[in-house]
């Protein structure tokens, strides 16, 4: 099955980013396809390379980057939501790209299921 993923909450502040990541991992392990992960609202904060959690904590941003590197998952940050929150190309972590909301709708059209992770 092909999944589109929508993440609406920021990392560390909310479980959504963790659950979405675990969902993506599990789906890929089972042979499903992740069409795209779209970061919206405070979810765009998953994409900043300035993130530096304590060493004994999970690194949510690097975890996404690794997922993109290993599985070619398309990580898309909403440009408008990103600009509001200071997420721009200069501080974008590896594997992410910035694009428009059309990418979310497009993924909805293309995927078998869209799963929202948020509040």
């Amino acid at each position: 099955m092909k999944f589109g993923i929508l993440i609406n909450e920021g990392p560390y502040n909310h479980q959504a980013a963790d659950t979405a990541y675990q969902f993506c991992k599990a789906a890929l392990d089972k042979g499903h396809e992740i069409d795209r992960v779209f970061f919206y609202h405070d979810g765009v904060n998953n994409a900043t390379k300035l993130t530096e959690p304590p060493q004994d904590d999970r690194h949510i941003v690097n975890r996404w980057s690794k997922l993109a590197e290993e599985h070619g998952v398309d990580l898309v940050v909403c440009v408008a939501a990103g600009l509001r929150r200071g997420i721009v190309d200069d501080n974008l972590a590896a594997g992410f790209r910035i694009s428009g909301l059309g990418q979310l709708v497009e993924s909805g059209i293309r995927s078998d299921r869209v799963v929202t992770f948020g509040d």
């Binding site: 898309v76 440009v79 694009s99 428009g100 909301l101 059309g102 990418q103 497009e106 293309r110």
Partner: peptide, 9 residues
């Protein structure tokens, strides 16, 4: 033009 510059399949 609404797709964020990426061609649709």
């Amino acid at each position: 033009e609404s797709t964020g510059g990426i061609e649709m399949e």
